[in-house]
Structure formats: C-alpha cells, structure tokens
C-alpha cells in the first residue's frame, strides 16, 4: 500500500505492507533506529514518537495509518548538530544510564514542553508516566526535563543537585 508522509521534515513516499508497524517502518525501512522497540504492547514507551505533534507509541500503530501525517523521531530534534534542549538536559543532568528508554523519554518530554512551559515536578512525572526506565529511578530524568524547560524559557537551568551544598552534620 502506497503512503506519503513527512518524517523529521522530509517528504517520504513508500510502499508498505499494511501489517507493518510504524516503528518497524521507521527503523527498518527508513533506517531511523533512534526509536527503540521495548515491549510491543504499548507498556514501555521506548517507541514514542510525535504524530502530528502528539506523542504516540509507534509499536501500536500501523505505518499505513500515518499516511498524510507528520512524524518526528528523536533524530529530528537536533538542529544542524545543535542538540535540542531536552537532549542537552539528558546529557547535562545524567538523565540516562543504559539509554534504552531515552529516545522515548525525550519524545515524551518534548510533548510535555510543547504544552507547558513551566511544568511542576508532578506534571513532569505525570507526563513521563508512560515511559519505563529500569536504571535511573527517574530522579535525573526529572532534573533533565527541568533543565530543558528552563533553557526553552531562555532561563539559566537550575544547578545539578550533586553541586548542592552538603548539609553539615
């Protein structure tokens, strides 16, 4: 079945077998392996991409359903080698360990920051509730998103919490 869509700003036409999941199309047909496959049951969120600006889990959508849509994957965030503020936040605040969940986590954060400029910690945690991380305990991911939010508002990000003054006993 022929489909035409926009992926990371690039017009793409392809002939896909209707049973192909969007995530398989992105990874195998388009070579965009930044989007990971974790569970294929929509639990883990590793495959999160933006479809027409909204986060969805690309393992539970057929590629043909994206006909006419605009898709953004983690590869589409950086601008001419300049990291997106969310990517920079994950780098600067150690928002990852193994990195498997990171692309999906970053896309969920991008989805949140499109809607809310100054999310509270609660709102950040609610926004990444559909993304599982088995390494970090989420703490540094929340800090990374706070970093990105500040950057995107044109403010100085809060200092990393490992630089906070130690409490003397």
């Amino acid at each position: 079945m022929k489909i035409s869509l926009t992926i990371n700003g690039r017009e793409v036409s392809a002939d896909v077998e209707p049973r192909t999941l969007l995530v398989h199309f992105l990874r195998e047909d388009q070579g965009l392996t930044g989007t990971h496959i974790g569970c294929e049951t929509s639990y883990c969120g590793a495959c999160t991409v933006l479809v027409d600006g909204k986060t969805v889990k690309s393992c539970t959508m057929f590629a043909v359903q994206a006909d006419g849509a605009s898709i953004t994957t983690v590869e589409g965030l950086a601008d001419n080698g300049q990291l997106h503020p969310v990517q920079e936040g994950f780098w600067e605040r150690h928002g990852l360990q193994c990195g498997y969940c990171t692309p999906g986590m970053i896309m969920s954060a991008v989805g949140l920051l499109q809607e809310k400029q100054s999310p509270s910690e609660d709102e950040i945690r609610h926004a990444i509730e559909g993304n599982l991380c088995r390494c970090t305990g989420y703490h540094n991911i929340v800090r990374a998103i706070e970093y990105a939010a500040a950057k995107m508002r044109g403010e100085e990000p809060p200092p990393p919490d490992w630089e906070e003054e130690e409490v003397s006993v």
């Binding site: 294929e40 539970t60 959508m61 057929f62 043909v64 359903q65």
Partner: peptide, 25 residues
C-alpha cells in the same frame, strides 16, 4: 480500528489476525 490501544496489542501478541481492517483514526 480506532486508537489501537486494545486491538494492536492483540495483533502484536498474535491473538488476533484481522484480514481486513477499517482504520477510523
């Protein structure tokens, strides 16, 4: 097939193999 949050999981698990799907998205 609406949002796919039920059907697609069953398809991925191989519990359902619909031959013909009408996508309502």
């Amino acid at each position: 097939l609406a949002g796919g949050t039920d059907l697609m999981v069953e398809v991925n698990y191989g519990q359902k193999r619909p031959e013909r799907v009408v996508a309502l998205r």
